[in-house]
């Protein structure tokens, strides 16, 4: 079997799937920006700035997928069936793993722009709150990226069981990151909406949001643990 086939397949899965979430998220932000502009045409500068910052952070997930695709295409030199499986698995883990937080990071961006449409005076508070929410939402992508970087650098023993264990680890991390990514986004979305309504409670809301997001990520951590067990222990 030619290893290169699996490298290319892994890179394709990585960026192909990884672009889905961020694209939807950014579209959602742009949609809310246009609605906010319709309400507050006078604040177009501030709305545009917030939109661009929000979209740039939402892009992170897709950029991680791109980095992984580039690492697979240009940074790999292993050969053999086992290495081929690890490359394919790395692509699966990061590809599926970025869907959730790409889409999730779009949600707080959208609701921050909704808040801008209500009252553009709150621009600074909303920007800070949005950035924190989106940054914490990236956690599931970071876990997926970690697992797929481990997979790329790993040289596993040559066995049939290990091959399926590695594939299983990639599926666990990849699919496991989807739900918590979206869930984190929902928490941040509602927190941003609340900040838009009552900006003076921002400190309290940021704290609650971070705790809510941290607990939402628990299943993501279980996926990480199962993936690490499948990769290293089995």
């Amino acid at each position: 079997m030619d290893t290169m086939i699996f490298v290319v397949l892994g890179a394709g899965l990585s960026i192909g799937l990884g672009a889905i979430g961020s694209a939807i998220g950014e579209g959602y932000i742009a949609m809310n920006a246009i609605q906010a502009l319709g309400r507050q045409p006078g604040a177009s500068q501030k709305i545009l700035r917030l939109m661009i910052i929000g979209q740039a952070i939402t892009e992170t997930a897709a950029i991680f997928a791109l980095v992984m695709a580039l690492v697979l295409l240009f940074g790999t030199d292993g050969s053999g069936t086992m290495k081929a499986v690890t490359y394919l698995s790395a692509g699966i883990a990061i590809g599926f793993g970025t869907i959730g937080s790409g889409f999730g990071a779009g949600l707080p961006g959208g609701s921050a722009l909704k808040g801008m449409g209500r009252n553009p005076e709150n621009s600074d508070v909303l920007t800070v709150q949005m950035i924190i929410g989106q940054a914490v939402t990236q956690t599931s992508t970071i876990f997926a990226l970690t697992v797929s970087l481990i997979l790329v650098t790993l040289t596993p023993e040559d066995s049939y069981v290990k091959m399926f264990a590695i594939l299983g680890g990639a599926f666990a991390m990849g699919f496991g990151a989807i739900g918590p990514g979206i869930g984190d986004g929902i928490v941040a979305k509602n927190a941003n909406e609340a900040v838009g309504r009552s900006p003076k409670h921002m400190g309290l809301l940021t704290r609650t949001m971070i705790i809510g997001q941290a607990i939402t990520e628990t299943t993501d951590i279980y996926s990480l643990v199962v993936a690490l067990i499948l990769i290293f222990v089995v």
Partner: peptide, 23 residues
Amino acid sequence: LLAAGIAMGFGAVGPGIGEGFVG
């Protein structure tokens, strides 16, 4: 082992979204 990975992967989707709604 493959099934373990898929079980944990899909099993994490629902609770993740659900906990997000609660938060």
